[in-house]
């Protein structure tokens, strides 16, 4: 007997006492919880996103479309951290004012190549106000998962209010499970020393979020 059959057989025998229930799943499991917690206006939702991002030590900036290139140029220059990784589909205008060496996001790059980069600039798929979370889904303006991981400085541009939702349930509705997803809530952190939060372990130690709108 294969282990698959053995495990499934054990499961079926273990459930011999359970009365059959063939209701459709969404009937069998009632969901009385809220779809979102407050957040009545789009404007308030964006404010909440900014507050919660900042609460977990992300640095939040606001920008209109016209100032964006100069803001990004300024943020990169302030770090002076070396080359910048650029996803293939990033809006070309965003880096127009930045005088930096660019590393394209390519399949052939090794992790060590990426380790030489100082910063990365990406867009995002959706942002969640209640939790202060940005989600990347690997679209061309966000690139492969590793590019927002290995460099120590991540600048992420969120289009507000279109890309902002209030809650986790609303975010999941917008996301495609077939894509590789990375949910980011503040810079890398740990609670492993005395259960107290310390920022900065393996992921980018500086996360800057630009709310564009």
């Amino acid at each position: 007997m294969s282990s698959r059959d053995r495990v499934l057989g054990r499961v079926r025998r273990a459930l011999a006492d359970v009365t059959p229930d063939d209701r459709p799943y969404e009937e069998a499991v009632r969901r009385d919880y809220l779809r979102e917690h407050g957040g009545p206006t789009a404007r308030r939702t964006v404010e909440l996103l900014a507050e919660n991002l900042a609460d977990y030590r992300a640095i939040v900036h606001r920008s209109g479309a016209s100032e964006l290139p100069s803001l990004i140029a300024r943020l990169l220059a302030a770090r002076d951290a070396g080359p910048v990784v650029v996803p293939s589909g990033l809006d070309e205008g965003w880096l127009a004012a930045a005088d930096v060496t660019r590393i394209p996001d390519r399949a052939e790059s090794t992790p060590a190549d990426l380790d030489r980069a100082g910063s990365v600039v990406t867009a995002c798929a959706v942002a969640i106000a209640e939790t202060g979370t940005i989600v990347l889904d690997g679209s061309p303006d966000q690139g492969r998962r590793r590019i927002s991981l290995v460099p120590d400085h991540h600048i992420c541009v969120v289009r507000v209010p279109d890309q902002v939702v209030s809650s986790v349930p609303q975010a999941l509705e917008r996301l495609d499970p077939a894509r590789p997803l990375t949910w980011i809530s503040g810079p890398s952190a740990t609670s492993d020393i005395e259960l107290d939060r310390v920022e900065g372990v393996h992921g980018p130690r500086t996360l800057e979020v630009i709310l564009l709108g």
Binding site: Y56, I128, E130, G132, L181, S185
Partner: peptide, 13 residues
């Protein structure tokens, strides 16, 4: 960890 959300969540299919 008593956080609104943990810093990183990875989902892959």
């Amino acid at each position: 960890t008593a956080e609104r959300m943990n810093p990183y969540t990875s989902m892959w299919t």
